[in-house]
């Protein structure tokens, strides 16, 4: 009797745990379903040609999302160009050259950066970064794509540093010792052996950094000046811009449920979802492949 009850309890608990395990699949499915449900009707309201047009002016019925897509790209590319040298450089320094006391000091600091809410960084962007660039670069306004890129770089740095450092740390010590035994200096070993051996992990870091940047909302919304215009040249970096995320965040609050504008904002959500899907699948397949390779080497 007692044993039977215990067995039943066990079966119930096991089912619940299994259910919880499967829940992630359910949630990804639900997210996709609800984005599609609210976003796909946009194609009824707006022709595909207009949707991918170059004018975003919802009040007059212009729903061209190209300026938003290019705004996101502009800010992200800028951010990555800043974050790659900083992030990879920091990771290489921490894992290859830093004395351990310094590493133990710096790593928690970088973790803190990862914990800073983006609204706080956006606030500082408004208060400090934007005015600084306005004066320093002599611009009409400091709220530009470039300011957004700088903040985004800061936001994606912790991701890049920690994943890149992990990748460097998992390079087997034998590689380094081999190179050092042949008379290579630390510097030559780091760049000639360790970094190339960790390259798929470094690429993963880069991909996830990009993912972080494209998806970031509050900080960019607060500092990029919110101008949905198609960039016309390199100097667009120093003009106001508008990303996809910022558009959703700033306009969804004011639209009528079920209006074309509403559906188009959800449609942008679908695009963001798909981008993050591609970025993350690429990143995870990169790191998966590298794990297999390492196993084959070790056995």
């Amino acid at each position: 009797m007692k044993a039977q009850r215990a067995a039943l309890n066990e079966r119930i608990i096991n089912s619940l745990i299994k259910l919880a395990g499967y829940s992630s699949i359910v949630f990804v499915g639900l997210i996709l379903i609800f984005l599609v449900r609210e976003g796909l009707p946009a194609l009824n309201d707006v022709s595909l040609k207009d949707l991918f047009g170059s004018r975003w002016y919802p009040i007059e019925g212009y729903f061209g999302i190209l300026p938003l897509i290019s705004g996101s790209l502009l800010v992200t590319v800028g951010a990555i160009l800043i974050a790659i040298p900083l992030g990879i450089g920091t990771a290489v320094f921490l894992s290859e050259f830093s004395p351990s006391w310094l590493r133990n000091l710096l790593k928690p600091i970088i973790e803190v950066l990862a914990g800073l809410p983006s609204v706080v960084l956006g606030f500082l962007g408004i208060q400090i970064v934007a005015p600084f660039f306005r004066r320093f670069l002599d611009l009409p306004t400091g709220l530009t794509a470039f300011t957004g890129a700088v903040l985004l770089a800061l936001i994606s740095l912790p991701t890049i540093v920690s994943i890149a450092e992990d990748a460097l740390n998992t390079v087997p010590p034998a590689y380094r010792q081999g190179a050092l035994a042949l008379g290579a200096t630390n510097w030559q070993t780091a760049w000639g052996v360790t970094v190339p051996a960790a390259r798929s992990g470094l690429l993963t870091a880069l991909m996830l950094g990009i993912g972080r940047s494209i998806g970031e909302t509050m900080a960019v919304m607060m500092v990029t000046g919110n101008a949905p215009v198609l960039p016309s040249g390199l100097n667009a970096l120093f003009l106001p811009a508008r990303t996809m995320t910022a558009t959703i965040a700033s306009e969804m609050g004011e639209v009528a449920t079920g209006s074309p504008h509403y559906h188009v904002l959800f449609f942008i959500g679908i695009i963001l979802f798909l981008i993050s899907l591609v970025v993350n699948l690429t990143a995870s397949s990169l790191s998966l492949r590298s794990r297999k390779r390492a196993e084959r080497l070790l056995s």
């Binding site: 990804v28 609210e38 996830l208 998806g215 969804m252 959500g269 979802f273 993350n280």
Partner: peptide, 21 residues
Amino acid sequence: IAIINLAGIPSVVYGLFGLGL
């Protein structure tokens, strides 16, 4: 794969999803 994707979905898209569901 689902977990990796959940971790990467932009926070504003979660907002949309929450609004919809």
